[in-house]
Amino acid sequence: MPQHKISFQLYSARNFPPLETVLEGLAAIGYDAVEPYYPLYGDDAAAYRAKVDAVGLVTPTFHAPLDGVAGDTARFIDIAGTIGASTIVVPYLVAEERPTNIDGWKKLHDTLARAAEKAKAAGFGLGWHNHDFEYVSLPDGSRPIDHLIGNGVSAELDIGWVVRAGKDPVREIEKLAGDTIAFHIKDLAPAGTTAEDGWADVGTGTVDWKALKPHIDGAAKAHVLVAEHDNPADWKRFAERSFASIKALLS
Score class of each variant (00 low, 15 high):
Ser7Thr: 05
Tyr11His: 09
Phe16His: 13
Leu19Phe: 14
Leu23Asn: 10
Leu23Trp: 15
Leu26His: 14
Gly30Pro: 13
Tyr31Gly: 10
Ala33Asn: 13
Val34Asn: 13
Glu35Asp: 12
Pro36Phe: 05
Tyr37Met: 14
Tyr37Asn: 14
Asp43Tyr: 07
Asp44Pro: 04
Ala46Glu: 13
Ala47Arg: 13
Tyr48Lys: 10
Arg49Leu: 13
Ala50Cys: 10
Val52Tyr: 10
Ala54Thr: 09
Ala54Asp: 09
Ala54Lys: 15
Leu57Gly: 12
Val58Met: 11
Pro60Asn: 15
Thr61Trp: 06
Pro65Cys: 08
Pro65Lys: 02
Ala70Asn: 12
Thr73Met: 03
Arg75Thr: 13
Phe76Met: 04
Asp78Tyr: 06
Ile79Phe: 09
Gly81Pro: 04
Gly81Asn: 12
Ala85Cys: 08
Leu93Phe: 12
Leu93Ala: 11
Glu96Ser: 13
Glu97Ile: 06
Pro99Phe: 10
Asp103Trp: 03
Gly104Asn: 05
Lys106Ser: 08
Leu108Glu: 07
Leu108Trp: 07
His109Val: 02
Thr111Val: 14
Arg114Leu: 09
Ala115His: 03
Glu117Lys: 10
Glu117Gln: 14
Glu117Ala: 15
Lys118Ile: 05
Ala121Val: 03
Ala121Tyr: 03
Ala122Gln: 04
Ala122Ile: 05
Phe124Ile: 05
Gly127Pro: 01
His129Cys: 01
Asn130Arg: 01
His131Asn: 04
Ser137Asn: 12
Gly141Trp: 05
Gly150Leu: 04
Asn151Ala: 10
Asn151Gly: 14
Gly152Ala: 06
Gly152Tyr: 03
Gly152Asn: 11
Ser154Met: 11
Ser154Gln: 15
Gly160Asp: 00
Trp161Met: 01
Gly166Asn: 06
Asp168Cys: 08
Val170Glu: 12
Gly178Thr: 09
Ile181Gln: 12
Ile181Cys: 15
Ile181Pro: 06
Ala182Glu: 05
Phe183Glu: 04
Ile185Cys: 06
Ile185Tyr: 02
Leu188His: 00
Ala189Pro: 00
Gly192Ala: 01
Thr193Cys: 01
Thr193Trp: 00
Trp199Asp: 02
Trp199Gly: 02
Ala200Pro: 00
Asp201Met: 08
Asp201His: 10
Val202Lys: 06
Asp208Cys: 06
Asp208His: 07
Trp209Thr: 01
Trp209Ser: 10
Pro214Asn: 08
His215Thr: 05
His215Ile: 06
Ile216Lys: 07
Asp217Asn: 13
Gly218Ile: 04
Gly218Phe: 05
Ala220Arg: 11
Ala222Ile: 04
His223Arg: 14
Ala227Cys: 10
Glu228Gly: 05
Asn231Ile: 11
Asn231Leu: 12
Trp235Phe: 13
Arg237Lys: 15
Glu240Met: 09
Ser242Arg: 07
Ile246His: 09
Leu249Val: 02
